[in-house]
């Protein structure tokens, strides 16, 4: 059986908020390394991978591998009943029909108990090899979100170019064009506010802004975001948490 306790409900609430607009139904795979998820969006253009590691739980017990088939819209309805500071306990049998969720406030005088019906989800998994990326950019997640939002008002696509000069986001649309260039600017006192660029080789790729704006809903998970790019492979956007991560992979747009 599974029994997993999070000190703060906000962790799972933020993860679900981050991915619910990209995927609807997905398996939460529970095993002795924690709770993992991998799912593609309906159009098979983007992929999300999430890992909440056992170290992030106040209590974690999972005797055998359990797949929890969850509709994220339904899960979000139940999670709305949890206050951010509530302790959350997830429980499921070995072949569960339902996931039990218990929310307890810090004063220990309120216990909320919910059951979420589970589904059988036959999900395709992709093997993603360890990749040496041509360019890796670490920057404030809020700034990345702002750039994606601003450019999405002008165009459907953004060209991302990483060179030794910096990383340039540019787009062209019906009303005009726009570009934002970030230069390497490490902040010694507050590393989460700095921008670092590791460049092995110049990279130039084009991506759909609709997806990037969607990924930015994970900005609440981390002050920083890591963007990894290589020519002709999907972009990797990673939000790292204290004990886990949410990663998004996005296929580039290609010239015919």
């Amino acid at each position: 059986m599974l029994e997993a306790r999070l000190e703060q409900s906000s962790v799972l609430k933020k993860v679900v908020d981050a991915i619910k607009d990209l995927v609807q139904d997905c398996n939460f795979d529970c095993n002795d390394s924690g709770i993992q998820l991998q799912a593609m969006d309906n159009s098979h253009v983007a992929l999300v991978a999430m890992h909440l590691k056992t170290e992030g739980f106040a209590l974690y017990r999972c005797d055998r591998n359990i797949a929890l088939g969850i509709n994220l819209v339904s899960l979000q309805k139940v999670l709305r009943a949890a206050q951010n500071e509530d302790v959350m306990t997830l429980k499921a049998e070995d072949s569960p029909d339902a996931l039990s969720l218990v929310f307890e406030n810090s004063e220990n005088d309120r216990i909320s108990e919910y059951d979420l019906k589970l589904m059988d989800i036959d999900q395709e998994h992709l093997g993603i090899p360890e990749t040496e990326y041509g360019a890796t950019v670490k920057m404030p997640s809020a700034e990345f979100q702002r750039i994606c939002r601003d450019l999405s008002l002008l165009s459907e696509s953004v060209a991302i170019e990483a060179t030794k000069e910096g990383i340039k986001f540019s787009c062209t649309g019906d009303i005009g064009k726009g570009a934002v260039t970030l230069r390497q600017n490490p902040n010694v006192e507050k590393p989460e506010l700095g921008t670092t660029i590791e460049l092995q080789e110049p990279v130039a790729l084009t991506f759909s802004l609709k997806y990037l704006v969607n990924f930015c809903k994970a900005s609440g998970l981390s002050n920083t975001v890591t963007i990894s790019l290589s020519n002709e492979v999907p972009l990797l956007i990673e939000y790292e948490m204290e004990h886990g991560y949410v990663r998004f992979y996005l296929a580039p747009k290609i010239g015919d």
């Binding site: 593609m40 159009s43 098979h44 253009v45 983007a46 992929l47 395709e124 998994h125 992709l126 093997g127 993603i128 090899p129 696509s157 084009t206 759909s208 492979v233 999907p234 992979y249 996005l250 296929a251 580039p252 747009k253 290609i254 010239g255 015919d256």
Partner: peptide
């Protein structure tokens, strides 16, 4: 013309 590639084209199904 630019077209959208699929993520499945890059990674192997397991």
């Amino acid at each position: 013309k630019i077209s959208q590639a699929k993520i499945k084209a890059y990674y192997t199904a397991i």
